[in-house]
Design a protein around this nucleic acid. Structure first.
Lengths: 136, 136
DNA sequence: CTTAGTGCAAAGTGTTTGCATAGGA
DNA sequence: TCCTATGCAAACACTTTGCACTAAG
């Protein structure tokens, strides 16, 4: 684990206690925390970390392309550390749980030329909706 | 046009000047306005309409299933009046323009059984990203 | 030593709500 | 008439920013 910290170090990211804690909290599979949840977990390891720093750090990680912002259309954005591995999301309409999933084929291929309106496509995000076993 | 108003009337929706104006503003293809844009356009037809009423009305239309909420992951949510006709979105990474598109096949079919984690799928939203002719 | 990161608190957005009043059915 | 929708303003949730201070490299 901690590919994330590894990669950041290699990119010459200035490492501070706060940043390390944020990266550690985010690390893992099927992790999709809100900024506030990241802050809460960070505080338990480093009590003096401020919300602003968490927001700033998350924003930076997104800009660096190391973390993905997921707008789940509920209230707050969620942050996904698996920016490097292509995947899509499956969200439970009941409890809001999120799983990373890997559909067959490239979603982009499903959009025919006459539906591209002259756009140059760079990718596609797919959000599957359904009910998880617990909510059903 | 104005299928929307038509349908609402038939569902026994209490019709007021404010609600009619909101429905009229939303009507059409490739319409994806933010709540604030809806309010701005509504004001030009009915100066005394309030922001709260626009929000309440939009929320209601979403609950009724007549309008779709689209979280484009920029700041504000957008509202799409074509809830009745299945479609996906193509968004320009440059200017944020949104087009309704119709991909081939059912996106849900692309998710294999072993990637469904016991969920009962109800649908999928696809957001294609790219650059429009103007931004390229 | 220099520059960039941090904490704090305040300001910004976008959205929701409580309550008295107006107006549709 | 009755009951719901409206307007207003205040409350809210989430996020960003300005500034002085601290610490990494």
């Amino acid at each position: 684990m901690s590919d994330l910290l590894e990669r950041l170090r290699m990119r010459g990211w200035r490492l501070t206690a706060q940043r390390r804690v944020v990266a550690e909290v985010l690390d893992g599979d099927h992790v999709h925390l809100t900024a506030d949840e990241v802050h809460a977990r960070a505080v338990s390891r480093l009590p003096e970390i401020s919300r602003a720093t968490v927001y700033n750090t998350l924003g930076e990680l997104v800009t660096l392309g190391e973390v993905l912002e997921v707008a789940t259309d509920g209230r707050a954005k969620r942050y996904d550390p698996n920016a490097h591995r292509a995947h899509q999301h499956l969200i439970c309409s009941g409890c809001g749980a999120i799983r990373d999933v890997h559909p067959l084929g490239d979603p982009v291929a499903a959009l025919p030329a006459d539906q591209r309106f002259g756009f140059t496509l760079s990718g596609a995000e797919v959000t599957y909706r359904g009910l998880c076993p617990d909510c059903r």
